[in-house]
Design a protein around this nucleic acid. Structure first.
Lengths: 119, 119
DNA sequence: GGGATTGGTGGATGATTGTCAAACCATTCC
DNA sequence: GGAATGGTTTGACAATCATCCACCAATCCC
């Protein structure tokens, strides 16, 4: 459970507001945030996240950005990684921010438009 | 006064959360936001903003990003521009977001480290 | 053990971006 | 009119970034 291995992430006190905002200032990562907003753990499969149009390494990259910004935590269990929101840490560091973000976040279905990948 | 000319800015309904977060995900622009948090109008002089280390065209660029994201409004009066926060619009669009941001924003003095003001 | 599954790493590439410098423009002041 | 003031625009350049691709690593299952 909690004593599983975790991918590197900043300690709560080191979470930087500008870094968090930069991490969330991207449509893909905002969609990830909304997926994680349910508090549950999520796998990394692009399919499960409405990101079917993106290469898995791209999704991996975005998840790393979120993790290194302190937004998410990744638990490693076997060959699976379970990503979840660091809600408690974020609430402690930036009271009200996450609630405000989630309250005014756009409908997930509207987020990454169709993602027209230029051939 | 209010009926002075204003530089182009998005209507309130078009202010996009991801765009705002992207705009604020930069140390310089975060410092600008904190300067504007007092609700007053501010000139564009880097001096007045603790951005003496930046070229005026760079500051102009950052202010444009903020304005086009819908964060600020710019009133044109003569040869001066007066920039201020669109607090009402932002609060209407993203309730609680601005308060949470300002509450957890870092000390302005800590933001862009260098900025040695030549006396 | 061998193969399939899950996911990450590193390189390459094109797009954005942050910055400065110099030119430019409008307004005000002399 | 001419100079000074306050900002914007454009161009250049380096750095960052988002994306893809090919390959790699660990784990699970038979």
């Amino acid at each position: 459970m909690t004593d599983d291995e975790r991918l590197p992430q900043p300690p709560t006190a080191d979470i930087d507001l500008v870094t968090v905002l930069h991490a969330l200032g991207d449509p893909v990562r905002m969609r990830l945030l909304l997926s994680y907003a349910d508090g549950a753990e999520h796998s990394c499969a692009p399919r499960d996240l409405g990101l079917d149009h993106l290469h898995k390494s791209t999704v991996s990259h975005h998840m790393r950005v979120l993790r290194e910004a302190g937004v998410t935590t990744t638990r490693v269990a076997g060959r699976n990684r379970f990503v979840s929101l660091r809600r408690t840490d974020l609430d402690a560091r930036f009271p009200g921010l996450l609630d405000a973000l989630l309250a005014s976040a756009p409908d997930p279905d509207l987020l990454p438009p169709p993602a027209p990948v230029p051939a």
